[in-house]
């Protein structure tokens, strides 16, 4: 995507610079009109039109696959996240575990985060795992994520939420399946 964008930028700027510096042409009225129409329709409509169709054809289904729709096989792990000024409260409803500012997840398993807020609007985001979703008072939004590799990740509030916004950080640890089960056992009394 970035390479294509850079090429488009270079092409447009290149054409302008060429138009500025090439020796003035000596066309008659009709030729000028034809050249003009060709540029406007070709460059202004056809090229961007095709790009848009490609982008949408690629982007909409991709976005669709990221939705938390019912899946066959193992049900996604449900984790409840409540954002508040300025911390993250995490709850594992299936295991009855609660924690604050620390999220432990199994790697390789799909997780549905049910995100809500207790005060203002926040946004739940673990950059290296994928997209973000807003935490809005009065609603629960669902975000589906999956950590392919075990390891340490960093989550951060992405919607400005007041004085402590910069320090509203979530430590995320992805464990492999066995280690996660051990962790769960250790947490549940």
């Amino acid at each position: 995507m970035f390479i294509v964008a850079a090429l488009v930028l270079l092409a447009v700027v290149g054409l302008w610079v060429r138009a500025l510096y090439r020796p003035p042409p000596d066309h008659d009225e009709t030729t000028q009109r034809r050249i003009g129409r060709r540029w406007i329709i070709g460059g202004g409509i056809i090229v961007p039109g095709i790009s848009i169709v490609i982008l949408l054809a690629f982007g909409i289904p991709l976005g669709h696959r990221m939705l938390p729709l019912p899946v066959p096989g193992e049900a996604p792990l449900k984790i409840e996240v409540t954002a508040l000024q300025w911390r993250w409260d995490i709850r594992y409803p299936d295991h009855g575990i609660v924690s604050t500012n620390r999220l432990v997840i199994p790697a390789g398993r799909t997780i549905d985060f049910h995100v809500g807020s207790a005060d203002v609007i926040h946004s739940f985001w673990i950059p290296r795992l994928g997209g973000k979703i807003d935490a809005i008072p009065g609603r629960i939004n669902v975000l589906r994520l999956r950590a392919d590799q075990p390891g340490q990740y960093r989550g951060q509030c992405a919607e400005f939420c007041g004085a402590g916004h910069a320090h509203m950080v979530l430590a995320v640890e992805a464990l492999d399946a066995a280690a996660f089960d051990t962790w769960v056992e250790k947490q549940t009394p």
Binding site: L15, A19, G43, G44, I45
Partner: peptide, 24 residues
């Protein structure tokens, strides 16, 4: 999303109208 992309087209038309003006 579709509407946001469509709005690029009138802008592209202007950019190329300016280019064609310089070109000719």
């Amino acid at each position: 999303s579709a509407a946001s992309m469509l709005v690029a087209i009138p802008t592209a038309i202007q950019v190329f109208a300016w280019l064609a003006t310089l070109w000719t």
